[in-house]
Nucleic acid binder design. Sequence first.
RNA 1: AGAGAGAUGGCUGAGUGGUUGAAAGCGGCGGUCUUGAAAACCGUUGUAGCCUUACGGUUACCGGGGGUUCGAAUCCCUCUCUCUCUGCCA
Length: 426
Amino acid sequence: MLDIKLIRENADLVKAKLALRNEDPKHIDDILSLDKSRLEILHKVEVMKETRNKVSAEIAKMKKDKIDADEKIAEMKKVGDDIKGFDDDLRTIESKIESILYYIPALPADGTPEGKDASENVEVKVWGQKKRFDFEVKDHIELTKKLDILDFERGTKISGSGFPLYKGKGATLERALINFFLDTHTTQNGYTEVMTPVLVNRASMEAAEKVPKFEEDMYHMAEDDLFAIPTAEVPILNIHRDEILKQEELPIRYCGFTNCFRREAGSYGKDTKGFLRVHQFNKVELFSFCAPENSNEELEKMLVQACGLLEALGVHYRVIELCTGDMGFSASKCYDIEVWSYAEDKWLEASSVSNCTDFQSRRAQIRYKKTLDNGKTKMEFVHLLNGSGLATSRLMVAMLEANQNADGSVNIPECLRSYTKFDVIK
RNA sequence: AGAGAGAUGGCUGAGUGGUUGAAAGCGGCGGUCUUGAAAACCGUUGUAGCCUUACGGUUACCGGGGGUUCGAAUCCCUCUCUCUCUGCCA
């Protein structure tokens, strides 16, 4: 969430930045007026509380000295009732402020390309090039069906559409990708591997800024008020919720593999074919708890690390920087990595790497004690960054398509062969 | 799932209605001593909101929320979590 102080003191700047994200400035005005009345009441009630504290101490003393204090007690009873009324008012106003604040996205970083929607994203890099096939390319549905490595029908029988069943060498290939990613991050990129819960409580969802705004996008188990994670970002972020980190231990970097679950409510009919949009998919996540002054650099590092995997796999990809209108709720700056699909004839998103600065850490109360030049210390919110490194399903689409042969067999990229123990699927 | 116990500052752990933001110890920081270090001794040591240029002031916080009271860490209600025993189980 945004800092209420920033809104109070730099309302015009906040409004201007939010306008770039197609946000209504009226929400900020609402917060400002609520905040103003909150402070007015706060001042009033704090003076009353001060009085009450002082007089209560006097009453204690009088009672000790066996002096009659009935008059003061009666007086304070009145004050106490008034305080209760004002405290109620404060609570009401505060919950109103929260209910607006929780729906306002992060401010875009300076220099983020301005734009209304995905059409105005900026391509910043292209790696590799398109292959030429002297036969007609098959799409991933046909390929995987012929090779008997993915069974969408039976996945649907088991759970519903969008719950893929991997089979045989398909399952092995998936496992190989995950292991390749994790091994690269732990041995070369300096990440600590974690294996997290995939069901998380409401507090964790709130800390990651997924709830309340996106609650209907989540699978939710009402009986225990648990949510199936849409990304490992949620449990990993919550590893350090409500903690004060040490300056010298930053950045703290975690990677982790999880299944990810998304209801994708309202997205039926769009890219729902086969593997393109599913309710359950696999992803290796990169996450960093980072000092604010280093977060820009950290974002670029994570992007390079994610790209490195695709380069090792030999997959043609491009990087786009998302424009202000297309960025995710919590992100200040965000890159997407897209892989080329020959059968779909378009780019598919395989990774998203974001700098969420202090937007989530404020809500999650993740701080560190910073030592200033004068030797004093100051609490600061850490910057949080997350990135997919990588999500497998769309990558699998691109990889199978790109590595197919005329006979419908598919070659396994060199770097995966030590994991799969086979070099072709036929 | 049943029975019981508990949740206090960075940690251990006192505290059952009135100078208790909270004893004591440990840890941290500063200092004395020392060639240096250790030990010893002295001092200091939470977070957040609001007011203030600043010094400082003030409010809140003893798992979360609500209540009783002039006054709550302390009493009541409720929720969550942890531990022990029993049961079940990959």
